[in-house]
Design a protein around this nucleic acid. Structure first.
Lengths: 192, 192
DNA sequence: CATGACATGTAAGATGTTACATGATTGT
DNA sequence: ACAATCATGTAACATCTTACATGTCATG
């Protein structure tokens, strides 16, 4: 079982969903932890079904919209997920192309890099704001559930807090880098 | 050209290195940005050589140690690296198995998860301390070079600052989560 | 009249990991 | 005696991305 399987089971443990729904969730809600495209999700769901981790029923739609398969987690799937959750995990390897570019930035003109840092900062602040909004909505609507460790919302809260911290720290780094780059740019002028 | 190529070129732009050296660097210094194993690095170096991005000369060793190929970046390689550095970059997708487990933590007993959070916190604080040490060493030994935007050490500084912020934010999240988990554990007792 | 939402997939290719192979020297 | 360091790779496998295929309805 690959990690993606557990991402899917983690969503299905909360509610039944179609492959299409799962793909949407992977883009939005699960984005701070894992990501996958539909072309990987559909075959993986078929594999989970063969292994007895999920079942599905075909739901016919109105308005000539295509039929959909709504997947549900089985007790076997729930057990596998429970076991995986409490297994030890190796520290995640970071793979960030933008930071890697920063490492070789000394080869280029700072002026050309500054707009890219501004854009990254903007996008990460935007993502941070979105997570904060989601968290606040959960807190307003489900105050009591968030206090129960056995509520799915407790898991959502943990993940959202991670996402918020990650995005803020990333955006702050961009801001700091822009400052450094601009400081360097103005330094030669101080010679006069 | 895959991202790994630029990671390798980014190291070779600073000094000539063997494949073995590069593999060591990828494990330590480049870890906060990218990672790769020797089995991927060696074939990739061969491809870079075919493309004229790097050259190598065989260096015979003493003490019956195996010969090594010391790679050097070419002007072509340096130009490719320079162009890549100032290209726009899509926001990096996060893929963190531990955070994904947190999302489904409501299915398990918090007591079983707490030690894993403690271990992750320990490892991330350790990594943070190591980056801080490296940065301080650079600052002590190369104070003037760090102020020059065209010095490799400027790139190192950017990357190290990122790594430090990332590790601290991760460790802080673990600490916060442990607190939450312990609070939940003690809550039932407050009923009396 | 084109794009996007809905809905499910397949096929080919790129990228990354795990396991294996060799062989001397130095440290525990 | 056993593992680690130095040094370079190959082969097989697992995973992920990109491109393609199908068809209707609503929106701009």
């Amino acid at each position: 079982m690959i990690t993606l399987s557990y991402a899917l089971l983690g969503l299905l443990a909360r509610q039944p969903l179609s492959g299409y729904d799962l793909a949407q969730y992977m883009k939005k809600r699960v984005a701070p932890m894992w990501s996958a495209l539909p072309s990987q999700i559909y075959p993986e769901l078929a594999r989970l079904e063969k292994q007895g981790m999920v079942t599905y029923r075909v739901v016919e739609q109105q308005d000539h919209r295509p039929d959909k398969k709504v997947y549900e987690i089985t007790e076997t799937g729930r057990e596998a997920l429970r076991r995986w959750v409490i297994e030890p995990t190796p520290v995640a390897a970071v793979r960030d192309e933008f930071v890697l570019k920063a490492y070789s930035l000394w080869l280029a003109e700072p002026e050309q890099a500054i707009p890219h840092f501004r854009e990254q900062e903007r996008l990460h602040r935007q993502q941070q704001a979105q997570h904060e909004e989601t968290l606040e909505r959960l807190q307003r609507e489900w105050r009591t559930a968030l206090e129960q460790k056995d509520s799915p919302l407790f898991g959502s809260s943990l993940a959202l807090h991670y996402g918020i911290a990650y995005e803020r720290s990333y955006a702050d780094w961009c801001q700091w880098a822009i400052n450094e780059l601009e400081r360097h740019r103005s330094t030669p002028e101080e010679e006069s």
